[in-house]
Amino acid sequence: MFPNNWCKWTPVALSADVPAGTVIPAWTPTGDVALWRSQSGQLSASSDRCPHRGMRLSHGFVRGEALACIYHGWSYGRDGACLRIPAHPDLQPPASINTRNQITTEREGIVWVVNEAQDEPPPSFDGYWPLRSMTFQASIAALEAAAGAKADISGLIRCTLGGETAFLLAVTKGEAETIVHVLADKNASLAQRIAISQAGEQLRRDAESADALEGAN
């Protein structure tokens, strides 16, 4: 699972799921983040709470190089500093108003976030590229049991889905929720990718029902 002792980065989303000019909610061990990509393509992870009235910034909108809150339109730059308060157009917002952004990077189509600067970049997966992200209402143990495989020392789960080899990047979110990014061979055909994706949904059902049974006992 991620993050772990060897990798402090958390995989939070697929690059393809955050096109330029959009924002999505994501999760890190430090807390919820609003993950957004500016018009010019720069990625940022802001704390998912506007300091003004507590509104989730992941419900906001991206304009140019800034993320704006949907409630009152306060906008924030890539460094987290508040740039503009529309109710007071002539006011220069004080530097203390800040969304406390984390550090982001992208590698091979995966977005990684970390709280403090790291010497090591996030890992590479040897020709395996991300297919989709999923949320399991199940523990990581239930996921491993359903996949018939355990995470290796690097945190990666290698298993077979739809007859193909797949890699799973799992992130524990609370006791009974796991975020899973599914990776497939870069050269997999469309039919193989669909088979892996559908097998991923079956894996989710298996893991969730295993946890539900355990909960009932």
Binding site: P51, H52, R53, G54, I85, A87, H88, L91, S96, I97
Partner: peptide, 8 residues
């Protein structure tokens, strides 16, 4: 301290 109001 938990939230930041302005004149509005």
């Amino acid at each position: 301290g938990m939230e930041i109001p302005t004149r509005a």
